[in-house]
């Protein structure tokens, strides 16, 4: 019998034996699961050895994966970086560029990848025999353009500050009203954990005035997301209604990782494009932005 302390705070777990045994070894059973396992072990005491094995495996894994102390040079370089940052903060301008994504030096590799990507991206949102509006060719150009712009704004302080130079929500709404003929709504997404950083006009392929808003995670963890807004001239008529939210992923099938997520929907004469590389954060953003619940993957 396990001596695990039942933990009522655990999420409900499937009641298969393998899961129960591993959770028992981790002291992560709920009261109900502990009771179930206790009853099982009363009839099958030999299975206690399975729990003991998992505990032994945990200790052995910890030993095998413990790589010891970090190199002294690494510690020194971080201490030096801390000191340099403190000096920069003391003598430099006030913290108007405090977002880590925009303050760190970018690597040449990232730029190269970006350039390569700009030439190679393929939109998944394609439908054969589209005769007008949202054609495969246009969709590829739109997605490629959106991702390139989003990345450029993430990668370069100067580019972002120059392009997205409207830095308050009120000014952004006023400016977008002028740019687009209508102000996008629900653009504050702090409920989703993101704060408004900047807005600027842009030129999404396919016609119609457009603008971009970029948001940063409030807690400083994660990547920015961008919301692009474009005048709706019927580009999506053949693929989506006002009640639909098109969802797609821009990725390389040969790679294991999911790519950036792109969501597209229409509302009140505007088309909205949300791009994020954080899959789990996309849903709360969409909720805050008022995107339709009906998702369609094309």
């Amino acid at each position: 019998m396990t001596d695990s302390i039942p933990n009522p705070d655990r999420a409900p777990l499937p009641m298969d034996l393998a899961t129960l045994i591993r959770c028992a070894a981790d002291d992560s059973l709920s009261l109900e699961q502990a009771d179930a396992l206790r009853a099982h072990l009363a009839d099958n005491p030999q299975d206690q050895a399975r729990i003991d094995f998992e505990r032994g495996l945990r200790d052995a894994t910890a030993k095998a994966m413990n790589t010891g102390a970090a190199p002294a040079e690494l510690r020194q370089s971080i201490e030096t970086m801390f000191a340099e940052q403190q000096t920069a903060d003391t003598v430099g301008p006030p913290e108007t560029k405090s977002h880590s994504y925009w303050s760190q030096p970018r690597r040449v590799g990232a730029i190269a990848a970006l350039i390569l990507f700009a030439f190679s991206v393929v939109l998944i949102i394609q439908r054969p025999n589209q005769s007008n509006g949202w054609s495969a060719g246009l969709s590829q150009r739109v997605v490629s353009w959106i991702q390139t712009e989003h990345n450029k704004c993430c990668d370069s302080d100067k580019y972002r500050e120059k392009k997205l130079n409207v830095v308050t929500v009120a000014d952004a709404q006023e400016r977008s009203r002028i740019d687009l003929g209508a102000a996008p709504t629900h653009i504050q997404i702090e409920n989703a954990g993101y704060k408004f950083v900047g807005y600027g006009s842009c030129h999404i392929p396919g016609g119609g005035a457009s603008g971009q808003i970029i948001y940063a995670p409030i807690n400083g963890v994660g990547e920015p997301v961008s919301l692009f807004v474009q005048q709706d001239n019927g580009q999506l008529d053949s693929v989506a209604t006002n009640n639909d939210c098109i969802e797609g992923i821009i990725a390389d099938r040969s790679k294991a990782d999911p790519g950036d997520q792109l969501y597209i929907w229409r509302r009140d004469g505007l088309i909205y494009y949300l791009i994020t590389c954080t899959q789990n954060k996309a849903k709360p953003c969409l909720t805050s932005l008022g995107a339709p619940d009906n998702r369609i993957s094309l």
Partner: peptide
């Protein structure tokens, strides 16, 4: 970012 490349996927 390093893995970006061309193709389309339906594994969303």
């Amino acid at each position: 970012r390093d893995n970006r490349g061309p193709t389309s996927v339906a594994e969303f």
